[in-house]
């Protein structure tokens, strides 16, 4: 009884479970520490730094000077090229993401049948996505759609006069959209996994009821697949806004700024114009844009995504 009144013992008995809990957690944290330290130092740290830099004038070579909201004000008052790049980026995302998902789903449905050699085809069709973001594919695309490229060679076979697809303002963006649509492998694999999850009984009973292939696809496959479509839509939208390599390598943002993606413009500001403060502000604005659209998709999901486990919507 009086033992517990002594302060020393009271604190010890209080501290030791805390300490033990801490020890337990520390083991867990120590296991993930390589990732954790990397994340804090190379992701969170630079992000905080860029948030600070976005409020400064910083030309990399001399130290940053405080600028308040200058950079953000400049973005909306005196930067017509930013508006161009926003227009280009939105157009690109709104066209390429649905096209890519539709195409990925189409190919996934084709590969969902258990034919001989289908595994080989799946692998082959996945290859463009593995090498997709790389510089090599971009360079290849530039060659294919260039003035003396293979595309024009094929066209000339049909007596159609070719053109410089990547160098003409009317076709440059479409050529880049075609490239990203062609890199459909990652969403395709996820669709494929989703398709495998759909219970076969549903199809069987639909067949018994006399439903055709199209009906089965729209009434069973598509609704059952909405969670996967949702996931792919979110991922591809985020990726779409951050597209860089294709434009940077193939068209360098041109011609006439028709492929000036947001990320390319940001890079130009940071490293060609040494305007790192402004580029940081651009980066944070991009984060807001992506956040907004992701939130929008999440919000809308309740009205179109179907989770079986919830027993419906």
């Amino acid at each position: 009884m009086h033992d517990s009144k002594t302060p020393g013992k009271a604190t010890r008995s209080k501290a030791s479970p805390l300490l033990q809990a801490w020890k337990k957690q520390a083991i867990g944290y120590s296991f993930i520490s390589p990732w954790l330290i990397g994340f804090l130092c190379f992701v969170i740290g630079p992000m905080i730094a860029s948030l600070y830099l976005s409020f400064t004038h910083y030309d990399i070579l001399s130290s940053p000077t405080w600028a308040g909201w200058d950079n953000y004000v400049r973005m909306f008052t005196s930067d017509p090229r930013l508006m161009t790049s926003l227009k280009v980026t939105f157009l690109f995302v709104f066209l390429s993401v649905p096209l890519k998902l539709a195409f990925a789903l189409f190919v996934a449905v084709l590969f969902n049948r258990n034919r001989r050699g289908v595994g080989l085809y799946r692998t082959i069709y996945y290859i463009p996505s593995i090498i997709g973001g790389s510089v090599a594919v971009a360079v290849m695309w530039r060659q294919l759609f260039g003035r003396n490229g293979a595309v024009n060679d094929i066209l000339s076979f049909f007596h159609i006069e070719g053109m410089n697809w990547v160098g003409s303002p009317d076709t440059a963006l479409s050529t880049l959209i075609l490239l990203v649509v062609w890199q459909f492998g990652a969403p395709m694999l996820i669709f494929l996994a989703g398709l495998k999850q759909i219970p076969l009984e549903l199809y069987e009973s639909a067949s018994v009821d006399g439903a055709g292939a199209a009906r089965k696809f729209f009434r069973i496959t598509l609704p059952m697949l909405t969670p996967v479509i949702f996931f792919n839509l979110v991922m591809q939208t985020i990726n779409g806004f951050m597209t860089f390599t294709q434009s940077f390598i193939i068209t360098e943002g041109g011609p006439l700024d028709r492929t000036l993606f947001y990320a390319v413009y940001m890079y130009e500001k940071a490293f060609a114009h040494f305007d790192m403060g402004y580029a940081s502000a651009l980066a944070w604005f991009l984060l807001l844009i992506i956040g907004f659209f992701t939130a929008l998709i999440f919000k809308s999901s309740s009205s179109w995504v179907y989770y079986e486990s919830d027993g419906g919507k």
Binding site: R142, G146, R147, N148, M163, N164, V166, G167, S168, G254, P255
Partner: peptide, 9 residues
């Protein structure tokens, strides 16, 4: 013309 200029690598 510009599209010829653009195609020079």
């Amino acid at each position: 013309p510009p599209d010829v200029v653009n195609s020079v690598q």
